[in-house]
Write a protein that binds this DNA or RNA. Structure first.
Lengths: 243, 243
DNA sequence: CGCTGATTTGAATCCTCTCAACTCGCGTGG
DNA sequence: CCACGCGAGTTGAGAGGATTCAAATCAGCG
């Protein structure tokens, strides 16, 4: 939680951990070298605000490492998470200078950043880039709609089970029991799920007592039977969109 | 509610009511003439299913007239609306053949349809088209996130007030009192808001008794004071995204 | 060791849902 | 003409799930 901004030496795209998943995934060497000239790395530590709600947004960026949250809030302080950004996810809205959401680093985060106008120009001239961004945006829409089903219709228990199954599947290594470090606090989980912290905590306790999951400390989840967890989540085991 | 499919004579793009708002908005005459050769109109009457959840989706389309709903459902029958499509909105997901949602005509609907593969080919060759689709997709993401805030954090009263204000603003003619015919049933309203029919009905009664709105029959809403309605909706009066 | 923030647990309240009955508008047919 | 059925919408009573407020416990760290 120390409030230190780091401007790192910016490494080459070759060897970048998100090279084949981010917005630049389908770029050719010549296109990549143009990006190379524009980009700069910057890091935030967990808890820091990257962009304030309503503030001017003069860059576009990809998440290289770490995890950030997108939230919208109401005047009286109620907050809803509307995006959970993981490595390779894109931040920014070509054609708009204002950020409609707050972006906060959930863990330590490193972004690969581009000047907004420069990026927009490049986007207009590089079909590989705009096609990829369209593809990512369509995935984002699917994910948002899945999320809407969760927020609108699932019970607290199903919500918590859904989030845990998402995190466990993303961290899956093939070994059982599945094991994952929760990248977010209970508060962020509650914000994701449209619940209160207390309800999240209670449901995790119940899932544990019912033998669906187990925990090693407050931040590490274990699960022997992902199918059972997904049944608790109210999803059919295969009907999930990978995003 | 009569179950009649109509295949209409397909009019020219020139003079199309959604010519300047749909995915084709920025196409030039030459591009338009290619679209012209591919398109065909088709109509559904209110209540009919246009695409079943999980079914093959072999077309892309724009809504020309009417209103359609996108819904996702759970195995036990719970249903959440995840999209409310109005004229100029786009249906289809380039690059994917399966429909993850059910599409139903809320009112009588006419679509301007394209063969999916032909449309994808055209999309790849026509930057005007893909840029416009990207723009529309980004708007869609913003709308979905606004909707997530509603589903996750708003009270029943705020939810209903929000939906009514959206409908009234869309139908606005400048004259007061604002007046709009509700294009959807109470059931669809409930599905949109993540509530039950009964709760929607009760909240509308309360808003009426509190003088925020009035009604002419069950399907026509009137409102003298949009600012008051939007205050009930929990939004700041100007912080809304136009989509 | 003791502080601070994060998490868990408890008790009471409140909001929304469930189940049920009732009203309304409308077209059908005796 | 009116009874009838039907679907949409409204209203009521009671139950239940999530929240609120409060206190206790835990974990990490100087």
């Amino acid at each position: 939680m120390t409030a230190i901004d780091l401007t790192l030496a910016t490494p080459a795209c070759r060897g970048c951990p998100i090279r084949h998943r981010a917005v630049c995934a389908t770029c050719e060497p010549s296109e990549l070298s143009r990006l190379e000239g524009m980009k700069s790395y910057r890091s935030w530590s967990a808890g820091q605000t990257i962009v304030m709600e309503g503030a001017e947004l003069d860059f576009a960026a990809s998440i290289v490492t770490g995890c950030a949250t997108l939230t919208r809030s109401m005047e009286d302080g109620r907050v809803q998470m509307v995006g959970l950004l993981m490595p390779s996810d894109f931040i920014g809205r070509p054609g708009r200078a204002q950020a409609p959401y707050e972006v906060v680093a959930a863990t330590d985060v490193t972004l690969c950043m581009f000047d907004r106008l420069g990026f927009e120009r490049l986007l207009a001239e590089t079909p590989h880039l705009s096609t990829r961004l369209l593809e990512m945006s369509l995935d984002e829409i699917d994910a948002a709609r899945e999320w809407m089903l969760l927020l609108g219709r699932k019970t607290a228990r199903e919500k918590v089970a859904t989030l845990l199954s998402i995190i466990l599947r993303r961290a899956a290594t093939g070994k059982t029991p599945l094991r994952a470090e929760l990248p977010i606090t209970r508060e962020a989980m509650a914000s994701y799920l449209g619940l209160t912290i207390e309800t999240v905590s209670r449901q995790m306790t119940l899932l544990r007592k019912d033998g669906v999951i187990s925990m090693a400390g407050a931040r590490t989840v274990l699960c022997d039977d992902l199918a059972a967890l997904m049944a608790e989540a109210g999803d059919d085991a295969d009907g999930d969109v990978i995003s």
